[in-house]
Design a protein around this nucleic acid. Sequence first.
DNA 1: ACAAAAGTGTTCCCTCTACACCCATGC
DNA 2: GCATGGGTGTAGAGGGAACACTTTTGT
Lengths: 232, 232
Amino acid sequence: MADATSRPGVAAHEVLAAVLQVRARSLRAMLWQRAREPHAGRWSLPGGRLGDHEDVEASIRRQLAEKVDVRQLAHVEQLAVFSAPDRVPGPPRVVATAFLGLVPCDIDPEVPEDTRWFAVDDLPETAFDHGAIVLRARNRLRAKLSYTNLGFALAPKEFTISALRELYSAALGYRVSATNLQRVLSRRGLLEATGRTAPPGPSGGRPAALFRFTGHGMRVTDPFAVLRPPRG
Amino acid sequence: MADATSRPGVAAHEVLAAVLQVRARSLRAMLWQRAREPHAGRWSLPGGRLGDHEDVEASIRRQLAEKVDVRQLAHVEQLAVFSAPDRVPGPPRVVATAFLGLVPCDIDPEVPEDTRWFAVDDLPETAFDHGAIVLRARNRLRAKLSYTNLGFALAPKEFTISALRELYSAALGYRVSATNLQRVLSRRGLLEATGRTAPPGPSGGRPAALFRFTGHGMRVTDPFAVLRPPRG
DNA sequence: ACAAAAGTGTTCCCTCTACACCCATGC
DNA sequence: GCATGGGTGTAGAGGGAACACTTTTGT
């Protein structure tokens, strides 16, 4: 056991990403199936070892580029460090920095043969602690949909309000009212009408107006519910 | 450069904590002065190398025990990973998991000779990226004071509303109204009257009632401002 | 009586929800 | 005309901010 990593304070460092996307009315995560032991056959998150000359965010973006075109990643943010000593059989011991990644619902990335999308609420048997990481990612997304403009990262460039409603409902896990969704996002200045409309379906109905998000970086739109600073 | 840590994906891992406390109407962070190069003389965060048989949270609690009695730490939570390749001169390369730690304002921990408290808004020259970590900690605290019960971690066991007001004002950086603070926290069921009162000051005034927080783990009290699930 | 500090009552405002109603299209 | 889906108007509830007012003490 004279492995270099057995020296105190030294560990292998990996980066992992729970990449989420809404498809077919459900929130899905990208997983690939391990070919080798340990945990052969189980499904795991994309990622890999941290490179010597990159920070963790650059690393996860680089490694995801092998699975998904980086331009398709609308948002990436750190989730947490997972560091239980036995989370991965060693040596070396492996510490992971986990990320949340979001992909708009209108793009269908070409993924490798061993990679598939699974509904977050119906995950297969996952490797190591990857199932817990996906749940953390889901919870973070749900929270931020409410007080930031993060919806832009799940939506296509242009969309109807009902399409956006489907999106939010799938991500949040409960029915969202189209009426109030439009009003809340409009009041916050996040939505912008394109002026164009989408054709109605075969059974008729008024054609839906197309909207887009006004900005594409994450912004906090509802900074504090209470204890606001005094006006003046 | 045949250092073991130069192998791809292997790095030294340290844990650091921005330990915050309100003292004398300002939010302060605990720093110690480096004796050795690099950055000798600069002020840095407590922490150290991750041990082989502990996760990052156990590690930071263990290492803080050398500076502060662990029982005095009312709250500890992960902030983020700091991993710029050159954040600390190497080799070995050092990746840090940063924490936020909170100490109630009524205890005055015995700290080592090289350790002092500094106002967060007036930090001395800090080592490495530790200044940025303290700012992240301050921002996290400010956000969570608004939508969680995290005030309990800054407050003494029992307190008057005006004392609590001072606390929140110092932590948030702006004047908070005692009237509304009491109402908000009471409505959320976070405050509990002890039935006892504090004696008035030398210039008179009505004696203040003493309160305590009803719980001591962090709870989210204002989960989402908008897009709530439908009732029913 | 007066000043000082604590606590309460009241009003206003803003935001989100719910639901009824109107609009534009296909058949 | 009528069904279908899109969009708006409006009333209601809730929570927080602001501020006046009352309560309780010391001098």
